[in-house]
Measured scan of single mutants.
Amino acid sequence: MTEYKLVVVGAGGVGKSALTIQLIQNHFVDEYDPTIEDSYRKQVVIDGETCLLDILDTAGQEEYSAMRDQYMRTGEGFLCVFAINNTKSFEDIHHYREQIKRVKDSEDVPMVLVGNKCDLPSRTVDTKQAQDLARSYGIPFIETSAKTRQGVDDAFYTLVREIRKHKEKMSKDGKKKKKKSKTKCVIM
């Protein structure tokens, strides 16, 4: 069974824990209790493949930012979460993405942009803004509501699919490099 290491990042209060708990335990946590770091595991079937999701729910508070490099190193894919009623959390996505790329030393890291709290009427981040940002990053965008469960499975499952595509691409690139290195030079 394939294991996928997913990391949920975003500013404090955007609903990272609520999304994760909704996926794992099928219930909505409405009281806000700032996370330092929590880890969850769940076995699911995605596109006919049974897999184990190892999900790291991270601290959004700035005082825990020193811990970010460590979990970013171990993560295979990242859910970059903002709240649709919090423009600052949307603007912060850029910083999370840049930090992930720096730590992973790669421009090509599996990510999904997630606009959470889409059940709320007080939207300050337009869907088109988020779609445009995701398009500019070359990553999928999904709106979710941890409260109603809308888009929750889709967000995590899409990230797994992005990781699969990335692994497939990397193995193809690896095979191309191996083929090239088999060419021999004969000096007579």
Rank of each mutant, 00 (worst) to 15 (best):
S181Q: 14
R164S: 13
R161H: 10
D126L: 08
K169A: 09
F156E: 00
R149Q: 06
Q131S: 09
I139F: 03
K167N: 10
T127R: 03
V186S: 14
R135C: 10
K182G: 12
R135V: 08
A134M: 03
K175L: 12
Y157R: 14
H166S: 10
K169V: 07
G174I: 09
R149A: 14
E162N: 04
D154Q: 12
Q150G: 13
H166G: 06
K172P: 09
F156T: 01
V160Y: 05
S136D: 14
G151P: 10
T158E: 12
A146S: 00
K176D: 13
L133W: 12
D154E: 13
E168P: 09
D126R: 04
V125Q: 06
D153S: 12
K177G: 08
G151N: 12
K178V: 14
R135F: 03
K182W: 01
V152A: 09
F156D: 00
A155G: 05
D153P: 08
M170A: 03
K169D: 15
S136G: 07
L159H: 00
A130K: 02
T183N: 13
Y157L: 13
V152Q: 09
R135T: 10
Q131M: 11
A155T: 02
G151H: 08
R161G: 12
K177E: 14
D132W: 02
K172Y: 04
M188F: 01
V152G: 07
R161I: 00
V186D: 15
A134Y: 08
I139H: 02
E168G: 05
A134S: 05
K178C: 11
A134H: 01
D154V: 06
E162V: 01
T158G: 05
F156Y: 06
M170T: 07
K128N: 11
T158P: 01
D126K: 10
F156S: 00
K175G: 13
A134P: 02
D126P: 02
A134C: 05
Y157P: 04
F141G: 01
K180L: 10
Q150T: 15
A134D: 04
C185Q: 15
R164W: 08
Y137M: 14
V186L: 07
K169L: 08
T183P: 15
I139L: 10
R164V: 13
T144S: 09
V160Q: 03
G151V: 11
T127C: 14
I163C: 08
T127A: 08
A134I: 02
H166R: 12
M188P: 15
S136T: 09
H166L: 10
K176L: 11
F156M: 10
K176W: 08
E143V: 03
V160H: 04
K184G: 13
L133F: 13
V125R: 06
D132S: 05
A134F: 05
Y137L: 13
S136F: 06
K169W: 03
T158W: 05
F141A: 01
I142L: 07
K167W: 02
E143A: 05
I187C: 15
H166W: 07
D153E: 13
K128W: 04
V125K: 13
V160E: 02
V160T: 05
A130C: 12
K180G: 14
V160D: 01
S136V: 07
S136R: 08
R164M: 13
D132F: 03
K178Q: 15
K169P: 11
R161T: 15
D173Q: 07
E143R: 02
D173A: 04
K178G: 11
D132R: 03
F156A: 01
F141D: 01
K176I: 01
E162S: 05
D153V: 12
Q131Y: 06
T127S: 13
R135W: 04
D126C: 10
V160W: 04
A155P: 09
K178P: 10
I139M: 08
T158C: 05
K167H: 10
T148M: 08
T158V: 03
D132V: 03
D173M: 02
T183M: 04
K175W: 03
H166N: 11
C185R: 15
V125P: 01
R135Q: 09
S145C: 12
K184V: 00
T127L: 13
V152E: 07
L159R: 00
S136L: 10
K177T: 13
T144F: 02
E162G: 03
K167A: 07
K177W: 04
K128H: 06
K176F: 04
D154K: 09
I187G: 15
L133R: 08
I139Y: 03
K175R: 10
D126E: 13
K175A: 11
T144R: 01
E168L: 04
D154R: 08
K177R: 07
R135Y: 03
E162Y: 02
M170W: 11
A134V: 03
K167F: 02
D173S: 12
E143G: 04
R149Y: 12
E162P: 00
M188D: 15
V152L: 14
R149P: 13
V152D: 05
K176C: 11
T144Y: 01
G174N: 06
Y157H: 13
G138V: 01
I142V: 09
K128V: 06
V186P: 14
V160C: 05
K165V: 04
A130S: 06
H166E: 04
S181G: 10
G174V: 07
V152H: 08
D154G: 07
I187D: 15
K182Y: 02
F156N: 00
L133G: 03
G138Q: 02
D132G: 04
F156W: 05
K172C: 05
K128P: 05
K178D: 15
F156K: 00
E162F: 02
V125D: 13
K177S: 12
V125M: 15
K182V: 08
D154L: 09
K172I: 15
S145P: 00
E162Q: 12
Q129G: 13
D153C: 10
E168N: 06
K165G: 08
V186R: 01
H166F: 09
S136P: 01
K180S: 14
K177I: 06
Q129F: 06
K172A: 13
D126Q: 07
Q150L: 07
V152P: 04
D126W: 08
V152I: 13
M170N: 14
A134R: 01
S181D: 15
T127D: 13
K128T: 08
K176V: 01
K169Y: 12
V125S: 09
S145F: 02
D153W: 07
K176Y: 12
K165P: 00
M188E: 15
M170S: 07
R135G: 05
K165S: 10
C185L: 11
T127I: 14
T127H: 10
K169E: 09
D126N: 14
E162D: 02
